[in-house]
Design a protein around this nucleic acid. Structure first.
Lengths: 138, 138
DNA sequence: TATTGACCTCAAGTTGGCTTGAAGTGGGAT
DNA sequence: ATCCCACTTCAAGCCAACTTGAGGTCAATA
């Protein structure tokens, strides 16, 4: 039975031990047991942390991530809610695609004033159309 | 010449006036002039704010966004740097795609233990493969 | 001319997500 | 048996990105 000390888990995932303790405090992960005072983690925690990293990169708060997959990888939310979050991510992907294209454009277009460039204008219309894939605090 | 009062700009973009002043403080936007003490914004600020919203949704800090398009829509960074940021966004899009699929999976899969489900395992391998599209504080 | 109300500044407060520091604990190699 | 050192707790501190509040300005309407 291969259990991981917090230091090993930290090194293996790149997440600082202090952050791991914090994640536990907010209910995102949990050690399978304690040896003395020391937390012993199961190997599945490594994959949980990948998911958490992904959720963070997507701009979700730790609380929201908790709703998607809790300490067992099972969601705390109803299916419909999860589908809505998936849809929100889809919208965000479209927004990011526009942003990426806009960025590549300003990197390549020789025009000195991008605001005047027709291609950029086109991208801006898409940007405005995007309007809030809006996950945020509240 | 159609200038916008901060209240109008705020209402039109959904960004609170306090946030607009803050954006100015950090150098993201600027009024074209002041009438008395009051800021008067040009209409292009509306599109700038769309771009800013997009960048925020992508997880960029205000400082990073400033590097992409400054108050004139022109970048403060060299092309190569912008291309790298575009590439980072591409990686993030792939990560988000995986997250979305994982989410849809847990919403649909009847298995009680997702960690055991082969399809989920497959998604997790992708999640681990993603490993840091890593934009973050310094 | 007086009042209104949207604007202004500046300082302080808030929230999320951690990090840092001080002081203590305990498993395992010597 | 002792020492080390990675671990522990708990409180406080920190940063970004704003928000809130107190007190002030001023253009336009009544």
């Amino acid at each position: 039975m291969k259990l991981l000390d917090i230091g090993v888990l930290s090194e293996r995932t790149g997440v600082p031990a202090s952050a791991l303790r914090y994640y536990e405090e907010v209910g995102l992960i949990a050690p399978v047991l304690r040896r003395g005072l020391r937390r012993q983690y199961g190997p599945e925690t490594v994959t949980q942390l990948s998911l958490i990293a992904l959720g963070k990169a997507a701009g979700f708060s730790l609380d929201e991530i908790k709703g998607m997959f809790n300490a067992n990888g099972a969601p705390e939310l109803p299916r419909s809610e999860l589908q809505q979050r998936a849809d929100a991510i889809d919208r965000q992907i479209r927004g990011l695609t526009t942003l990426r294209d806009a960025l590549r454009h300003v990197a390549e277009c020789p025009a000195e004033n991008h605001m005047a460039c027709p291609k950029f204008q086109q991208l801006l219309r898409l940007a405005s159309a995007y309007k809030r894939g809006g996950r945020h605090r509240s």
